[in-house]
């Protein structure tokens, strides 16, 4: 497989329609999970090893409502989109319904993300400082 030489700006300017948009979002959410979960793991490690104020503050920041909503968005989007990619890879005839599958994915994503995100943001569910 020969990789295409691309730049970051070309990715954003590429007019691939909804297919390119979900691909970019898959990358962004994947990098978001990697960054936030790595920071969370390292902060939890350092908090227990040193009990220092910085890692305690980072952990509190990670557990704050906006960050939890963002993490939930990233995980749920990445999981659903990844599942669609998986199904299309395992069963190529599904690619005929590529666009419909993307709309189905959003139809699942919006309520499954929206309702808990609303509750987390409003602080209706407990355990969320």
């Amino acid at each position: 497989m020969r990789r295409q030489r691309t730049s970051f700006w070309e990715t954003l300017r590429y007019r691939g329609g909804i297919g390119a948009a979900v691909w970019v979002l898959h990358r962004v959410t994947g990098l978001g999970i990697l960054l936030l979960v790595s920071v969370h793991v390292m902060a939890a490690f350092l908090m227990n090893a040193l009990d220092d104020p910085i890692s305690t503050a980072v952990t509190r920041w990670y557990e704050s409502r906006p960050v939890q909503v963002f993490v939930y968005f990233c995980v749920l989007y990445h999981a659903l989109n990844g599942l669609r990619v998986l199904l299309e890879d395992l069963c190529p005839p599904l690619l005929r319904h590529h666009r419909e599958l993307i709309w189905l994915q959003w139809a699942i994503f919006i309520p499954v993300f929206g309702l808990p995100a609303f509750f987390i943001a409003q602080g209706i569910v407990i355990g969320n400082p």
Binding site: R3, S7, F8, G30, L31, I33, V37
Partner: peptide, 18 residues
């Protein structure tokens, strides 16, 4: 999770860093 994530980061970096 960590192998999946950091391998994904490698793939993204290989796309943009020449």
């Amino acid at each position: 999770a960590s192998w999946h994530g950091f391998n994904g980061l490698r793939v993204v970096v290989e796309d943009y860093l020449h």
